[in-house]
């Protein structure tokens, strides 16, 4: 099995190999991986990689999926330009 050819995060092209390497280095939370690999920060916002990485962490730590937290969700869900925000404020009452 070539782990470098198994994609877990399609937005950022992160492979199983990348994730396993971080796990071996001791980074065992989704939040750690998000900061180091940008998983969950692309257009799909972890809807693809979320459960795949959660499962890899659970498997690695030998814990049930229920115990594995995924990333904190924050606004914005999609790209908004500064111009759009400025224009939006203009119409504020």
């Amino acid at each position: 099995m070539d782990k470098s050819k198994i994609i877990l995060c399609r937005c950022e092209d992160i492979t199983l190999d990348d994730v396993h390497r971080l796990l071996d280095e001791g980074y065992t939370t989704f939040e750690d991986m998000k900061r180091l690999l940008r998983v969950g920060m692309g257009p799909c916002q972890a809807t693809t990689c979320g459960h795949l990485i959660q499962w890899q962490i659970a498997n690695y730590l030998n814990q049930p999926m229920e115990e594995i937290k995924i990333q904190k969700v924050r606004p914005l869900t999609t790209g908004v330009t500064l111009n759009q925000i400025v224009e939006g404020i203009k119409h504020e009452d």
Partner: peptide, 22 residues
């Protein structure tokens, strides 16, 4: 129209045809 952000005071920001609204 996409919901961009949801806040606890029930203000919701949206992107409607490239316009950012609340």
């Amino acid at each position: 129209t996409t919901v961009v952000g949801l806040y606890e005071d029930k203000v919701v920001t949206i992107l409607q045809h490239n316009e950012y609204k609340k």
